[in-house]
Simulated scan of single mutants.
Amino acid sequence: MELRSVGKTYGRGGGAVAALRDLSLAFERGTFTAVMGPSGAGKSTFLHCAAGLERPSTGTVRLGGTDLAALDEAQLTMLRRERVGFVFQAYNLLGSLTVAENIALPLMLAGRAVEPGRLAETARRVGLADRMRHRPAQLSGGQQQRVAIARALITRPEVIFADEPTGALDSRTGRQVLALLREIVDREGNTVVMVTHDPIAASSAQRVVFLADGALAEAMDAPTAERVAARMARLDGARFDGTRLDGEG
């Protein structure tokens, strides 16, 4: 998927706030990218525009050969159900449904048949084959997040957006969830875009994209937690002292 010169402004006139500014990014199939930046950098707005949850004010967002701006609301809803997966910090599982039903929910909402073999295989991929009849309250936090990941995978989406997927987990469980996300990229060829504030989480990705003031500040390949933390410290420092970010390495 690709964002070209995307801008997003909230409000009008003197009260207008630019959340994204001329942002261009591409995410190749089979890659794991983390998106980071200081508070107010535009991370959430980026995710909402990239995933078709909000329309940008300027620029284009393309998923495969589809220009999201050309779709009406009903078509956008279908695109999100069938071609995009979502994993959130809060899991967003339905407590009245079993693990199997929660995983199959996107297919059910789209009016598509739930193939038992496909459901079983998706559960196996995330290590939940023996938990299909359980309900969320019977699972640990890490297991619930695995259900959310399986739910994102069930439609075989072109891209999975993860918003702080380890934010509610302890460090050990968080590492397991990150390892699972990396595995579905490396072994299965899925595309994952993860918004996070955690340098350790970001170091699980193949690339980290840093945003500042709604614009691209830098992209880092083969990140380590130490390098990511150092870069974030520079961005935070620039944010508070007014240092220009343009041209920084």
Rank of each mutant, 00 (worst) to 15 (best):
V209N: 09
L97Y: 14
L53Y: 09
G242K: 03
D67V: 02
L79P: 02
I184E: 08
M78S: 13
H134P: 04
L178D: 13
R81M: 08
P38W: 00
L68T: 03
K43A: 01
L181G: 00
G85P: 09
H134L: 12
L211Q: 05
Q138S: 06
A230L: 13
V209D: 05
C49F: 04
F161L: 04
L180C: 04
D186H: 10
S96R: 12
A34L: 11
V228G: 03
G13S: 09
T33R: 09
E115S: 13
Q138L: 01
A123R: 10
A162C: 07
G7L: 05
S44H: 02
L216T: 00
Y91C: 06
V185T: 07
T77H: 03
A41L: 00
D130T: 14
V126F: 01
R135K: 11
Y10F: 15
A26P: 03
E28Y: 06
T173E: 04
V17C: 02
G13W: 07
A217T: 01
K43W: 00
G117Y: 07
V35K: 00
S96V: 05
N92C: 10
E2T: 12
A219E: 15
L93R: 04
E82R: 13
G7M: 02
H48N: 15
L169I: 08
L153R: 03
A219V: 08
R131C: 13
I103Q: 08
G7A: 05
Q144S: 07
Q145K: 11
P106F: 15
G237K: 10
A230S: 12
R125Y: 01
A202G: 15
M132Y: 09
E28V: 05
T66S: 03
F46N: 05
D67T: 02
R172H: 13
D213S: 01
A238T: 02
E188D: 15
M108D: 14
L235V: 04
R133A: 15
L107N: 07
M132K: 10
A113Q: 11
L79R: 06
D186K: 14
G247Q: 13
G111K: 14
L119W: 08
A217D: 06
A50G: 06
A123V: 06
G11F: 07
A18G: 00
S39P: 02
A152R: 05
D198A: 06
D241N: 12
S44N: 00
A162K: 04
A150Y: 03
F32R: 09
V6I: 08
A129P: 10
F210D: 05
L119C: 09
L20I: 07
E101L: 10
L181P: 06
A16M: 03
G7S: 14
S204Q: 14
L216R: 03
S39G: 00
A162T: 09
V185M: 09
P136D: 08
A70L: 10
G242L: 13
D130V: 12
L68P: 02
R146K: 11
E121A: 15
P199V: 07
R124S: 13
L235I: 02
L109F: 12
E82A: 12
A212T: 00
A225Y: 09
P199M: 09
T77W: 01
